[in-house]
Design a protein around this nucleic acid. Sequence first.
DNA 1: TAAAAATACTCCATAGGTATTTTAT
DNA 2: ATAAAATACCTATGGAGTATTTTTA
Lengths: 299, 299
Amino acid sequence: MISTKQLTYFDAVARHKHFGRAAEECAVTQPALSMQIQEMERALGVALVERGRTIRLTDAGDQIAARAADILQRIDGLSDFANSRQAPLSGQIRLGVIPSIAPYVLPQVLPELQRRYPALELRVRETLTEYLLAQLEDGSLDVALLALPVEGAGFDTLPLFDDAFLLASPAGSAAGKRTRPTIDQLADAPLLLLEEGHCLREQALSFCSLRDIENADSFGASSLSTLVQMVASGMGQTLLPEMSVTLEAGRNDIDVQRFAAPQPSRKVGLAFRKTSPLKADFTALGDVILDARPPARDI
Amino acid sequence: MISTKQLTYFDAVARHKHFGRAAEECAVTQPALSMQIQEMERALGVALVERGRTIRLTDAGDQIAARAADILQRIDGLSDFANSRQAPLSGQIRLGVIPSIAPYVLPQVLPELQRRYPALELRVRETLTEYLLAQLEDGSLDVALLALPVEGAGFDTLPLFDDAFLLASPAGSAAGKRTRPTIDQLADAPLLLLEEGHCLREQALSFCSLRDIENADSFGASSLSTLVQMVASGMGQTLLPEMSVTLEAGRNDIDVQRFAAPQPSRKVGLAFRKTSPLKADFTALGDVILDARPPARDI
DNA sequence: TAAAAATACTCCATAGGTATTTTAT
DNA sequence: ATAAAATACCTATGGAGTATTTTTA
């Protein structure tokens, strides 16, 4: 097979019409270059150069020189393309985010990502943890932003921050209570939850005693907005992730209270295949997510 | 620089998504292939493959695989192109022919060449020997069909055949003369010649004694047709190359006689730069010219 | 004769092979 | 536990260097 070395040498010969100067350009000796040209002619089975006191390309040599130049340019193009990709967070990255994070984090993160890494082509997909992990596994996602820990041995994770759960109850129900609520108070009213499959549902339940679980709404809302709406209408109380309160709880028909320590919380982070070579990119992505978070508000 | 070997190996990996099978296809061992892929990744500065129990291409790897396949196809194209050129008499050949040969040889030779070598793109140029040789030298011609020998050390020649000179005289002037004329008879009447620059003129003069030369027409015709016309009108006699008589002397107002031995003749052959790598092609070209000549006619 | 490319040879870099270890599922 | 790729180490091919010869103009 013709080597790129041969193409390079022959391209130089075609341009200089002189083995010595071509060799100089290629930073090799003339015999080395001559041998490669001869080998190339042998491999192709056609004379490329007419040798004499001064050399000349044959007709075939002319045509092959043009093709060689084109090929060399495309090979250089590989490096150029690769260079454009070797900067962190450049090229395509497919990010999955769970529904209980996406609307609260992406609005801040996406513009900042675009600003810092204009070469990044981020594809975002929002779905349940279960599907995110499956898509990570089958390669249709590169990284997922979700609640840790994740099941499955094939994944590596990058923890980012803790997101506290706050107690949301109908307005007035918390009135007069100075002290912060404790987990035990989950038993005081029906616990409204997201529908099956949302990790938030499982996490909320994990803070409950078995008896409380009977208290839980067995239908489940399909979004936090719906959940908040249900709380506001007095159907019960729920746990809201802190990151969601600005967006979801900026209304006066519900009360949101921070729990007394130890506060329940979920850990948010990135997950990716442990074989992924993009770990450095994910670290940079994590930094942007952390930087883009609004500062914690006192509640 | 990325080598074609690396591109080949990586292309195989991209298609098989498996180092071992890719290595098998490339007829090397898995470690050898692995090393080249690693070296390619190092050279490009990007991860191309995500390694695991089963491997997967990165986004950059995907894109580079597509480019690599394209480049490899173009490199294969070089060989294909060269193969189409390595058959004898294929591709472009630029042939020069002198005016006293072209109209008598080309009509037979060109169709036969086209028939035997359909891949040949012959460019024919007709001009005087002097210019043909200059164009051979500067590379704007590959080969010339002319009268040998040629001046100049840089040329190699391939003699093809002898072309006798016949005596053409006005009709009736040769009547009754049973015996063939001799060179001496050139003195019997004014000798009509082609204009300066035509080698035929010099060759004809070379057969004349100094005294005859005074006899020669000093203006000169610009073509053999004109010359024959002049002979027919009784202005004198001339020498005609045998190859031309069928075309030029098929008329009853001139007599054409073969000289007694030793017959004057010119040697016709091919000339080309001695550095030309197309010698084999020129030999094949010579064969076609010889084969296409009409059989000698008795005159 | 002078300039240029080819040849002869020597050496070393490196591609590739074998055996083994590490890693991922 | 097993399949697959990486690593370690060794060998050998061939690319490149130096010196020289051959060829062309």
